[in-house]
Nucleic acid binder design. Structure first.
Lengths: 245, 245
DNA sequence: AGGTAAACTGACTGGTCAGTCATTAACTCG
DNA sequence: CGAGTTAATGACTGACCAGTCAGTTTACCT
């Protein structure tokens, strides 16, 4: 009765063929795998349309699944978003912690440089950029997710860096500085630059620099701020007026 | 015919009375003022709901105007958003430039401190925070607006700071450093911290610090990174291994 | 084979909301 | 005052889409 009764093997896989990851899961039973398939699809849709803009139909289509199936695994769109973010962040954390375990190195400066290589790689990955955009743009509607992000990503990363700073100070490599504040400064520099690097067209200064260039520039600047303050001891070369602190 | 024919003086100004700025413009002729009234209302609605979340009906209600009236002045919701952002940013730029003109001061450090007081105040104002959130979260859907933001806010601010840095280097106050890069570092530090300060609940370290505390902490750190590098000249006090650059 | 449960489907519903337009109010000027 | 013009209104339309559920398919058992 209906105009076109689309059967299972209908001959209209137009866009589907263009998209890389649309496997045909139809009627293939593998319920264990379903949530992750859906979350992966959701990641991409949320990535380029945001929470409000993403359509469940599109997520379903991308996952190779019917819309109803999504509701077998997630109570609603918001929960799907929540789990997608949480899942992505957890992957990110694990990357970061693996990084830490790999650096039982020598000097604090060296350790910082080593950590920042991996940390930067992580910040610059698509996966993180997408979450970052959502965190900044939409996550204030989800206070608990925001808190989760603050605790499990920001604070954890900061603790990691803070420990290295403290060690560097103790060894006399770095000046005396509150480790938490110092870690925050590094976060700020890298976070913001990772965002700007994703919008290179807009920022001529970054357009010609590679990711690695930017990271080095960042770290050189940062390490300068951490160097012990010799000015009091050293020869009075510069006659700069010293204002208050 | 209709159930409740809401006349002009109907007795249900429930929320209206609570809201501060809902004047009754109905039928009062002042077409010159209309666009700005609407943009102001739009600012508030976009602020707490984002582009997708804001409802034209609510904007109209807040502006004390009927929905149709909005369409007399703006072709659609997107254009309204566009103009709202552009208008807000222009106001921001004017604030920043007024700041620059006020500082014909002495040392570069002093000038930097002075500029950063006003710059920080501007970054921390609601008006900017809202735009910032949208820029980071939704503006990638509007490449031309993004470009406008990059050129007229980011680049302009950077040029301003860059000039001060260059002057400081010339005077021997600061070490030799690429002014543009140095300006970018300051932007990164302040931008990111301004965001974090708006989410204080999430960041224990900032929870107990006032805006001014944060600004000072930031600037002290930053100026440290700009100090001339005396280590080569000075007494070899610290036996830190010097790795590559 | 036949039966049953679990997995999955997609047409449908109901609510929401951007954008329209016929109508009305206010103002102007002859 | 009343004819004409401009400003403003808000009920309505049509599209869109989250979420539902009656029905279908598959897997797995006797």
């Amino acid at each position: 009765m209906l105009p076109v009764m689309t059967t299972v093997q209908d001959p209209t896989p137009l866009q589907e063929l263009a998209l890389p990851e649309v496997a045909d899961h139809r009627r293939r039973r593998d319920p264990e795998a379903r949530p992750q398939q859906i979350l992966d699809a959701a990641f991409h849709e949320f990535a380029d349309r945001g929470l409000a803009g993403a359509r469940l139909d599109d997520i379903a289509k991308r996952a190779g699944v019917a819309k109803g199936t999504i509701y077998l695994y997630f109570p609603n769109k918001e929960a799907l978003f929540r789990e997608m973010v949480r899942g992505t962040l957890i992957a990110a954390i694990e990357t970061a912690e693996q990084t830490r375990d790999e650096t039982a190195s020598d000097s604090a400066e060296m350790q910082l440089r080593q950590i920042s290589v991996n940390w930067w790689r992580f910040l610059r990955a698509d996966r993180f950029q997408v979450v970052q955009r959502m965190v900044l743009g939409e996550l204030h509607h989800f206070p608990d997710l925001m808190q989760f992000y603050a605790d499990e990503v920001v604070a954890r990363g900061r603790r990691l860096i803070g420990a290295v700073i403290a060690r560097g100070t103790a060894r006399g490599e770095f000046r005396v500085i509150e480790p938490d504040a110092a870690a925050r400064m590094l976060s700020a520099l890298t976070m913001m630059h990772s965002i700007w690097c994703s919008r290179r067209q807009c920022f001529p200064a970054l357009a010609n620099a590679s990711d690695d260039d930017v990271r080095n520039e960042l770290l050189d600047f940062y390490l300068h701020a951490l160097r012990p303050d010799h000015t009091v001891v050293s020869v009075g070369l510069s006659s700069v007026e010293r204002h208050d602190l």
